[in-house]
Amino acid sequence: MNTNFSNYELERRLSLYHVFLTLYERHGDLLDRILQLENLYQPSLKGEHLRYVQGVVEDSSVYLITNLCDNQTQTLEQMQHIWTIGRDRSNGICADNRHLSRCHAAIQYIECQGFYLVDFHSTNGSFVNGESIYQPTKLQDGDRIRLGSLTFDFFLNHQHRVLPALPTDLVTQLIPSTANIQQQELGSHSAAQKTDDLVSPDETVQISLECAWGRLEYGRDGLQEQQKSDILDRFFQQSTRTDCR
């Protein structure tokens, strides 16, 4: 009976495994998205974040912005407009991923045409929106790219706008300028100086402090001798009660 149940359970798990492999081969991109959405709600995976590559065309400048390198956002310029991707440190985009080939693929910009993804006959392949590519493939804004098991989004930016200046009444509600901060500090310092000048050096400023042992009076010279003695007496009395308990 137990043997039959074990065989049945093994066959069931193998069947589920084959179903999962089939789904991953045909809809790997969809499963990657589902897994990433699940990871967003796991507190232990706070370090995980959206991986991306952004191609920027600005006047005569062409460059990439990405966080694939050491999990830090970087701007990458390359005079030939070719950014290689792989696990070898010599690549323009180096990612520590064991499913990447040493030089897995490249993103290339061709003038007046756009950005292309080129696979270098990698072991685990390159995919755009879940489709395996074998020839240079033009990238569109929002494409999902998977190299081996490394998945990231590609964004395209070729528009540049200069925004108008903000109204003065709105700017005053934002972070104050350095000049205003310095002026406020000078005003506060002057007010404090005037307050100090009102107090004679010979006067004693009394500060009342409520504590567990009663009300104490502080002067500029600290506690008076009688107060120090009272504090020590109360401390020893409290210690004696604690030891008796």
Rank of each mutant, 00 (worst) to 15 (best):
R144T: 03
S122G: 12
E111W: 15
T84R: 12
S188T: 15
V128D: 05
G86K: 05
C112M: 06
I133K: 01
F152G: 09
D96K: 11
L186P: 00
V118R: 10
I175R: 02
H121P: 01
R102I: 05
A192G: 01
L117Y: 08
S177H: 13
R146H: 05
T178S: 14
F120D: 00
N97W: 02
L174V: 01
S188D: 15
K194T: 14
Y109F: 14
Q173P: 00
A165G: 02
T168V: 14
Q108H: 06
F154E: 00
R98F: 13
Q182C: 15
G187S: 07
A179D: 13
F154S: 05
V118G: 03
D143T: 02
R161V: 15
G86W: 08
H160L: 04
Q182K: 15
N129Q: 07
K194L: 14
P176H: 14
F127G: 03
K194P: 01
S132V: 10
S101C: 14
P176V: 08
R102Y: 07
I85C: 12
T123H: 10
D96L: 10
T84K: 13
F155T: 04
Q108D: 00
L139Q: 07
G125R: 01
F115E: 02
H160N: 13
Q159S: 14
Q182D: 15
S190L: 08
I145A: 06
G148C: 11
R146D: 06
K138M: 09
C112L: 09
H160R: 15
S177T: 15
L170A: 09
G142E: 06
R87P: 07
D88K: 08
F155D: 08
H160M: 08
C103A: 06
L163F: 10
G142Y: 04
G114I: 05
L117D: 01
Y109I: 03
G125Q: 03
Q173I: 00
S149R: 10
I110F: 05
W83Q: 10
I110N: 09
R102L: 12
L198F: 05
E131M: 10
G86F: 06
D169N: 09
I107H: 05
T172F: 00
Y134P: 01
L150R: 02
S149V: 04
T178N: 13
I82T: 11
L147T: 08
N129P: 06
L163M: 12
D169E: 12
R98Y: 12
S132T: 03
A191P: 10
A105F: 04
L150G: 00
G92N: 09
D143L: 10
K194Q: 13
T123Y: 11
L139W: 09
R87Y: 14
L147I: 02
Q184S: 15
E111V: 07
S101K: 06
H104F: 02
C103F: 11
A95M: 09
S132P: 01
L139H: 11
